[in-house]
Design a binder for these strands. Structure first.
Lengths: 236, 236
DNA sequence: TGGCGGCTGTGAGCTCGCTCACACGCGTTC
DNA sequence: GAACGCGTGTGAGCGAGCTCACAGCCGCCA
């Protein structure tokens, strides 16, 4: 089927399955399904039983946690190739975050049973999983660090640079972010208020270091932004 | 050897190896070694190549990150049975945190080679590792959440309750923490300043909800502390 | 075409908790 | 016993960034 070819393509590009043999990929692809997701949709919520694993084909999903007052922080943002929802499948605990779609797209869904079976039959899958989790842990650790130490400016600068890594660079060295990001999404991702992000962006716009190109943020003076991000430089 | 019996005991009690067969345990025990660690000792630092994995036999190790200004936040605290240092062995990246001994004790050290070999020969080890990493990720996610949302009081209350989980309960429902914790260690673990922790503890002592018993903190009115941990408003 | 919902910009407070600057007690080491 | 190191207690002052309260814009749909 042509459908399968698409899927195998995607899976092969994802963090988790990239190292797998074609047969293993085919096995996984045939056990999952693809579905559309639309902006605002909630894929799962805290406390839900974990009955599936997801891989993003296109679009963007935010994994976040809420306070009872409705404040939200994004723990991770998943884009093409990103795999999430696997924690519950590994340890059987209920979901510990909410997953909400912030940019419409397509999603690959793998059932609990299929995942466990794949884990047990193909050792390379569990090795790949270990790497995925390691990377995620490092990212989260960095998030903890920046939330607790850095001021808003550096945190935002770092986020923009991280997003820019998958953006397009123009010939004059400017970088256009790969999609539209609302200020409130940016705020959630750095644990700040929407207003503060707005003010910081306004300031940088006035300074001419960033700008807008049809709704997308453009990093104009990347060096300056790097300075801001490193301001509180942590050795590495 | 009697030495091996000790080790196997410990490993069998640790997060990571508890599910293993006696043979696998013996294999691991014979490939690692036990050593003493003293307070203040640094086991590894950010940027070091990761050449070993550690399991705590006794004592306590803090995994933390620093700013260039010397501010520190603890990402995790490892006590008996805790396994750490495995990220680098999995993905080959350099260490991304510092590991420092805050309570003297004994440590089990497993070389990179022995660990990789164990991973590859015994599938149940990689499954156990997956669970360890999942749990760690959940803990870290909760840390992110509380650091970004909660005020100092609730953060500290939560930490005390978490530590108390392995403490001893008296007949009147009080809980004695399992060891001495300096205020500055507590501060690192909730991303706060030592002074603020001191003031909060003083306040609670005055209110009679916590106290001291030969250097160890005692939770007297656990219900009140639970209230504090849950919501961050109410009177003061 | 008017109204409504979502995103953005900006100012005015206010507050939590950080830094700084001490003072005190206790255990070790000369 | 003096002199340190280290953990602790406490107050003054200050500032980043939060909340609150609007106002302007745009796109969409009835």
């Amino acid at each position: 089927m042509t459908e399968d070819a698409d899927l195998i393509d995607l899976l092969g590009a994802s963090d988790m399955f990239e190292a797998l043999s074609p047969e293993a990929l085919a096995l996984i692809a045939s056990n999952g399904r693809k579905r559309a997701m639309k902006r605002g949709e909630v894929l799962f919520s805290v406390g839900d039983p974990g009955d599936a694993l997801f891989a993003v084909c296109s679009g963007r999903v935010l994994l976040s946690r809420f306070t009872s007052e409705g404040k939200e922080i994004a723990l991770a943002a998943m884009e093409r190739g990103g795999v999430f929802g696997e924690l519950s499948l590994i340890d059987g605990e209920p979901r510990s975050a909410d997953a909400a779609v912030v940019e419409a797209g397509e999603l690959f869904v793998l059932s609990r049973a299929a995942f466990r079976q794949a884990l047990e039959t193909d050792v390379s899958i569990s090795m790949a999983m270990l790497e995925v989790l390691s990377r995620r842990l490092r990212v989260t650790n960095r998030l903890v660090e920046s939330v607790s130490f850095l001021e808003l400016g550096p945190r935002l600068a770092r986020l923009l640079l991280a997003i820019a890594a998958s953006g397009t660079t123009t010939e004059d060295g400017e970088i256009v972010l790969p999609a539209r990001y609302t200020q409130s999404e940016l705020a959630k991702r750095i644990a700040a208020s929407r207003e503060s992000v707005s003010k910081q962006i306004a300031q940088w716009s006035r300074d001419g270091v960033i700008g807008q190109r049809d709704g997308k943020i453009v990093l104009i003076d990347v060096d300056r932004i790097n300075e801001w991000a490193d301001d509180m430089e942590l050795e590495l």
